[in-house]
């Protein structure tokens, strides 16, 4: 059986502000995506790959950070290797409470992703914490505050992780 989202074809409610990149920005993002070298003048090398001087590379990276296109440049950590625990979780919020519940969930530092999705349940978030007790404590707190059950869907096996966009 194929279950289609209820409002398939409806426009998304969120207006996306698209930012145009010039050619040099694209080259720079591609250079960053193929790993930042662990060398003293790391951005000099990134610049070279993109055909930019060190100064240009540094300035443009800062601009991309300011515009929010880059959230950060640096080490991407594997929480599991630090013995952190995490789970995908979902809650079915009544429409009138979506905002408030999303805000409550966002308030937890360990929540890294939080989305409203079509269908039921509708709020999907991931939580990563140093230990299972903290995670359970937080999720139980969300359940208590909302009066709603939170479905926990931890990873049992990882087949792929890694986002590299065609820029």
């Amino acid at each position: 059986m194929i279950i289609w989202p209820k409002n398939h074809g409806a426009p998304t409610r969120e207006a996306l502000v698209l930012i145009e990149l010039d050619d040099a920005d694209r080259k720079l993002l591609r250079a960053l995506q193929s790993d930042i070298p662990l060398t003293s003048r790391a951005f000099e090398e990134i610049g070279e790959r993109a055909g930019l001087s060190e100064n240009e590379a540094v300035e443009r990276i800062q601009e991309l950070l300011d515009k929010g296109i880059l959230r950060k440049v640096g080490a991407i950590i594997a929480p599991r290797e630090l013995d952190y625990v995490s789970t995908l979780a979902a809650i079915n919020a009544p429409e009138s409470e979506v905002e408030a519940i999303a805000e409550l969930i966002n308030g937890y530092k360990g929540v890294t992703h939080n989305y409203l999705r079509e269908g039921e349940p509708n709020i999907w978030f991931t939580m990563t914490e140093p230990d299972i007790e903290t995670m359970e404590h937080n999720i139980a707190e969300i359940e208590k505050a909302t009066g709603l059950a939170v479905r926990r869907m931890p990873v049992e096996k990882l087949y792929r992780i890694g986002v590299k966009f065609d820029i």
Binding site: T12, L32, K67, R71, K72, V73, I76, I77, E81
Partner: peptide, 21 residues
């Protein structure tokens, strides 16, 4: 990096702002 604690050194890109909405 060798021990896998750091997955890689790279950018964290907001794909939504690039139109991957």
């Amino acid at each position: 990096l060798a021990r896998g604690i750091i997955r890689r050194f790279g950018p964290s890109i907001s794909h939504r702002k690039l139109g991957y909405g």
